[in-house]
Design a binder for these strands. Structure first.
Lengths: 228, 228
DNA sequence: TAACACTAACTGGCATACAATATACCAGCA
DNA sequence: TGCTGGTATATTGTATGCCAGTTAGTGTTA
């Protein structure tokens, strides 16, 4: 068959192999529940490069990036290992999250418009309807969505980027976090309170509420969540 | 005394070429005043590998790491460019710094011991003696040392790591920041106040003082420092 | 003279081959 | 049997060559 017109379709992925390998690996690691026992924590460059159908070079660059982000550890001539964060490290991450989201909330009182703040209601109310009925996993997702929304309202790209980086790690233990009913109720009340502070444009209070809320999560994890 | 047993100094850690290239490049970039006009912002893989006496592979990995940190930008088939942060990005970095140092100060009230807090006096008093006489560059260094000390007292490694990453960028504009005399005096008064709050173990106040102090720096930069 | 087409050099992305070394296994010896 | 040292193997680190896209310079043409 003669090509009477130029097929400009395919080119598709103009991304570098490194970028694609990075995304694939990150997604794969995020999916797997690395805190459950018995998962293989070891990776192999050559295996992976064969599976991805690329050479070791771009794969290595992707792995190096994941290493820097703290998702894996590349050890010379020994192997590549998926990193399990210690409980202490998780605690630190939640603390940093608290500091940054708190700042974002304060900033939001100045830079977010009314509509944006009003939109937060949906993220709380929608869930509030049948909180008890829903599975806790969904609650956790809704919870994180709410907090990411607040961070977005602060309109500080760096804060968003850093918390995104933390998100991967925090998400890994979310299923292990025990959200008993009381805590869920308390959490929703906190969220309402936060929205109210944002609506009244009281940056200091909004920041304090957010910080306290997240630090309570930290204490909860400290006390009830067992890692390792 | 005769050595009746072999003194076994662990063989000097032969760092990987990648690590060494990374350090050398980072130091070089940090040294140069990239915000001064006319500096060459372009790098070349082959040139650099020749100068370092290594092949392109480890050098590329070092550059990829610097790229991720935001110090350079590697553009396919066009070149590697040293990144000049925009003013908006600098502002965001100072904001993040404020949030994290503030949290560190709050934490310090709980986790730092009296001696550690008392040691802060030296960092302020030593400078306070002849503030006016000293060059502003030294003031800036002393200033940063003080703030890094507070961050250290928070004993949250993640906060230290993140602020260290920001430090490189913030340092690049420190020579452009105008520290007029009034500001220096005000700054010292702020520092005293912060130490006092730490000593009285009032986490909330310490955090607020630190945050306000750094946010004032932000406003100052916003108003008086010109980038680009 | 200006716009344009073409070519050659340059530059990062990628694949492949080789080097270095940590680990496991095994043979030999006390 | 238990220890010692050698050796094979596994695995990442590094060097090098080629490829494809970009850029700049040059010559050509209207």
């Amino acid at each position: 068959m003669s090509a009477n017109r130029l097929s400009v379709e395919p080119i598709g992925e103009s991304q570098s192999l490194k970028a694609r390998a990075y995304k694939a690996l990150k997604a794969a690691i995020t999916e797997m529940n690395i805190y459950d026992s018995k998962v293989e924590l070891r990776l192999d460059e050559r295996d992976l490069s064969a599976k991805f159908g690329i050479s070791r070079t771009p794969l290595r660059e992707a792995l190096a990036q994941l290493d820097q982000e703290g998702l894996v550890r590349v050890v010379a001539r020994r192997g590549i290992f998926i990193v399990r964060k210690t409980k202490a490290e998780i605690m630190e991450m939640i603390t940093v999250w608290a500091a940054l989201e708190s700042m974002a909330a304060t900033l939001a009182c100045t830079v977010a418009d009314d509509n944006e703040i009003a939109a937060l209601h949906e993220l709380v109310d929608d869930f509030g309807q049948d909180a008890v009925a829903r599975r806790m996993g969904e609650y956790s997702d809704a919870n994180i969505t709410f907090h990411q929304a607040i961070i977005g309202l602060g309109k500080n790209q760096l804060i968003s980027d850093i918390t995104d980086g933390l998100f991967v790690h925090v998400r890994a233990i979310r299923n292990r976090a025990i959200f008993e009913n009381d805590r869920a109720k308390r959490s929703i009340a906190d969220h309402m309170e936060i929205i109210e502070a944002l609506e009244s444009r009281d940056g200091e209070r909004a920041g304090k509420f957010v910080c306290d809320h997240t630090m309570r999560l930290r204490d909860h994890v400290e006390r009830y969540v067992d890692i390792e």
